[in-house]
Amino acid sequence: MNSEALHTRRQHSGTAHAARPATPADAEGIVRLRSAFVLAEPLAKEWIVRSGAELAARLAPGGDARACVVDAPDGALASCALALLHPVLPEPASPTGRAARVHAVATHPSWRRRGYAGSVLTALLDRLRAERVSPVEADVSGASVALFRASGFCGSLAPMRMTWPEPPVRGRVDERTGHVWLPLEQYAETVMKATGFACLLFTDTSDRPVQLHGVYSATHPWQLVGGTMDPGERPWETAVRECREETGIELSGPPRLLATVYGLPGAEWPYSTMGLVFDGGRLDEGQIRNIVLDPREHDEVRVLPLPEWRPLMPPRDFARLGAVREARRTGVAAYFDTWDWGTE
């Protein structure tokens, strides 16, 4: 994402580099900074627009949002601090019955190490103090801890939080055992989620593995023929379809299972992965030469002795290939359960 996509031009004049109160015209710029540099996962364009429109209304007079910003020389936002107000019961610590939570303090990388984050946070806190908004809370972690402590925050910087994404679970209680039997739909939401795939091991007549070079994955450059199961497909049906789409080869079966593969979720993929690898058979030179690749997925077919694949593949991919080939040699299906995501 380029720097212009992260900024929204302000619609009024101001002194560059000095923190100032934000107006509704700054809303989308604030949302973009928060999306890019605060949230764990940036917002999609649709949500940036929706959130920006919501924040603009809440920054207007009478709204419950308070923000301060620093303008960059080009008129974009260099830094911002945003808080949202909420009502609480009046008490000595909150005499006006209004509290606030800081939702974002963000500075574009081009304008960091100039003290802007401290300036906007200080200006925001001054506004809240002038309005007698108290207490002010924030969820803070990492490098931001020092900034908030320097601004006067103390105590736990990661308050406990309860959310209610779904209605409280209600189920049938077994009076004898005390076990709660959930409705089917609710129980289904509690079980592990996994994606399924099906692949094929092809070799040439000398038992050298045949693999395809993927154009879309730097992590898994060389791949067995196969892919992710579509809804309603059985594993062998997936293997047959993917083989046809990726190579032009039509398989008739019967299926011969070589390996079961399992991987834990990780940074690259949020679900567990479970798959089956079938024996695609041995291809002669003519069949290999006649393979038709889908250029959107693969750009090369290569046939190599097993040891020569090692330097071309991540260790876990090579280990899986070795286990699958050994299963064909011995006739004993392999169980390979360390094909985890994001471990290399």
Score class of each variant (00 low, 15 high):
residue 105 V to F: 00
residue 105 V to H: 02
residue 105 V to M: 02
residue 108 H to T: 03
residue 109 P to H: 03
residue 109 P to Y: 09
residue 110 S to Y: 09
residue 111 W to K: 02
residue 112 R to P: 08
residue 112 R to F: 12
residue 112 R to T: 09
residue 113 R to E: 13
residue 115 G to H: 05
residue 116 Y to M: 05
residue 116 Y to N: 06
residue 116 Y to K: 04
residue 118 G to C: 03
residue 118 G to P: 00
residue 118 G to V: 04
residue 121 L to G: 04
residue 123 A to L: 01
residue 124 L to A: 00
residue 125 L to P: 02
residue 125 L to I: 10
residue 125 L to R: 08
residue 125 L to D: 02
residue 126 D to T: 09
residue 126 D to N: 10
residue 126 D to P: 04
residue 127 R to E: 15
residue 128 L to N: 03
residue 128 L to S: 07
residue 128 L to P: 01
residue 129 R to N: 09
residue 129 R to E: 11
residue 129 R to P: 01
residue 130 A to Q: 12
residue 130 A to C: 09
residue 130 A to K: 08
residue 131 E to N: 07
residue 131 E to C: 09
residue 133 V to F: 07
residue 136 V to Y: 07
residue 137 E to R: 14
residue 137 E to G: 10
residue 137 E to S: 15
residue 138 A to K: 03
residue 138 A to C: 06
residue 140 V to N: 04
residue 140 V to F: 04
residue 141 S to V: 00
residue 141 S to T: 08
residue 141 S to H: 10
residue 142 G to Y: 02
residue 143 A to W: 01
residue 144 S to G: 08
residue 145 V to C: 09
residue 145 V to F: 01
residue 145 V to M: 10
residue 146 A to Y: 05
residue 146 A to T: 13
residue 149 R to K: 10
residue 149 R to I: 10
residue 150 A to N: 05
residue 150 A to R: 13
residue 150 A to F: 05
residue 151 S to A: 15
residue 152 G to C: 07
residue 153 F to Q: 01
residue 155 G to P: 04
residue 156 S to F: 00
residue 158 A to P: 00
residue 160 M to W: 14
residue 160 M to V: 12
residue 161 R to F: 05
residue 161 R to E: 14
residue 162 M to N: 06
residue 163 T to M: 11
residue 164 W to G: 11
residue 164 W to Q: 15
residue 164 W to L: 11
residue 165 P to K: 03
residue 165 P to H: 08
residue 165 P to M: 10
residue 166 E to L: 14
residue 166 E to Q: 15
residue 166 E to N: 12
residue 167 P to Y: 07
residue 167 P to C: 13
residue 167 P to N: 06
residue 169 V to N: 00
residue 169 V to H: 13
residue 170 R to Y: 08
residue 171 G to W: 06
